[in-house]
Amino acid sequence: MAHENLDVIVEDIVKPENLVYRRPSTLIDVDMHYCPGCGHSTVHKIFMEVVEEMGIQHDIIGVAPVGCSVFAYSYMDVDMHQAPHGRACAVATGIKRVLPDKYVFTYQGDGDLAAIGTNESLHAANRGENILTIFINNAVYGMTSGQMAPTTIEGMITTTSPYGRDVKSMGYPLKFAELIAPLPGVAYVTRQSVHTVPNVRKTKKALQRALEYQRLKLGFCLVEIVTNCPSNWKMNPVESNKFVQNTLLQFYPLGDIKVPEVRV
């Protein structure tokens, strides 16, 4: 039904002035190693879009974690540093103190930030370091084949909790965003996701706001992004996004947890 009378040819549409969306130039033009449908790739993409739109490609320094996203420096065309497991916030603290005019971010998964690096992350937040931490929460250890993480929700089956997480013996899941939000050094804490188009747009706005707050030197910013892990949840990408919507987001509600009283 669409355009039978319009007599439009493809060459008329594919012109620079009609461009709506293209791959951001700050994302290096290589294949990413992530599994099909992985939320990491989406977050890499939207964060690099934010960097491109703000024009800060040469003024931003990232710290890559250990985990699936250890190769973030192979995909993000910005200055990157690699930190030991869990220590990204400590390394970022050093970078920010030596180069206070640069934007500094860490990109960490839940195994890196909320398990091995809890101490470093918590104290960086408590010191009010002016850094942005992007926290990818997929509720399992992704790179090491899906063991239970501190963020695994109650009853969730992983390779090390094959009967589901039993909170009596394995403890309760950790809500890191809510944990650090009351600290006075923390400026901005929000939880977003990338499983639908509107959520991707909201996440992009949150990342942009966090960088604006960093420019104003307001303190520690945490953007938690609840994502999928199709391979280790043993689902296909579409099913895993449904699991995010129906199960994970019941425990990790989306929205701003702490917002500074400054309008940007």
Partner: peptide, 18 residues
């Protein structure tokens, strides 16, 4: 509308609109 390109994890889609 660009929805496909926004959700695409690997940024393989380029969208034009007239």
């Amino acid at each position: 509308c660009g929805n496909c390109a926004i959700i695409c994890p690997d940024a393989v889609i380029t969208v034009y609109r007239k």
